[in-house]
Design a protein around this nucleic acid. Sequence first.
DNA 1: GGTTTTAACCCATAATTACCCACAAATCTA
DNA 2: TAGATTTGTGGGTAATTATGGGTTAAAACC
Lengths: 155, 155
Amino acid sequence: MGYSDYTGEFKYSVDTKHRVNIPSRYRKIMTEENVSEVVISKGFDSNHIDVYPLPKWITLRDKITASMQLVNRTHRNFLRQFTQNANHCTLDSQGRIMLTPKLMELAGIKDNGNVMIIGMIDFMEIWDPDELEKHQENTPLTDSDFEKLEQLPLI
Amino acid sequence: MGYSDYTGEFKYSVDTKHRVNIPSRYRKIMTEENVSEVVISKGFDSNHIDVYPLPKWITLRDKITASMQLVNRTHRNFLRQFTQNANHCTLDSQGRIMLTPKLMELAGIKDNGNVMIIGMIDFMEIWDPDELEKHQENTPLTDSDFEKLEQLPLI
DNA sequence: GGTTTTAACCCATAATTACCCACAAATCTA
DNA sequence: TAGATTTGTGGGTAATTATGGGTTAAAACC
């Protein structure tokens, strides 16, 4: 991992086969880092899809399983939700991934519609455009966010 | 980074392909520092574009992501807004960068219009000329601003 | 076991972007 | 001041990218 820097926002179509393009810059980063496989999963909170390049998935998985106590009910529930909707997939020769019906449903992504892909530095998110807009409207950056920023040394 | 010293104010045109020239002195600094890539992003507060030479972007990104937890909803929301409008771009052979439609829209920069580029020591800002003038008129530095500044170490 | 469904692979094309060359204006140099 | 160089700007062309569809191979399903 290390130096991946997925940033920006891209709009792509979802075709009838549920294929979604991955931004070409992201693909370049992945080939540089010898990654041809990603894990797509339900986003932690809300209605979108997370896309983890395999190495990122592995570290995430390890962090979670390391601190996990199997006897703890909440932990078990979290683990179940975490893995349940996680699907490995490889890019096709045009650089696309195929979404599963379940994840599309969860994210409100419509067949033959569009998606927004957002870079989150070391992974990506896939959103239905309407859901994203709704979410942004509901979570604007507040003054207190910026106050927190100011507390960081030297930004 | 270290010694970059972007200063001054420049006026350039935006052509039909959304290309904007980078001041030649800035380009010289960048080649000296082996930087051929920048990240353009929505400015923190207002309606302009920030241009970070890649090393500056990396340090900024690292400071912001250092204290982030992926399982924290607020953190994720903040990270998303931070990266969403950040686009990597490389200078073309004439030393220009290409603005994205979204950032132009956010900054009020008109197709085929002009921009002002302002040096901010280790990064740059791109403004629509009218927006800049308006902003300057509305936000003169007051005495109380300077009092706050005085509380900062070593200015 | 045969049929239907599903997914991988390949090819085609339109749109977009990167790359290259050109030229006028400004700046530098001798 | 005159010539040479650099700088800002525009446009054409080749390459890349996004997207669609057809075909074969592999599952899944009676």
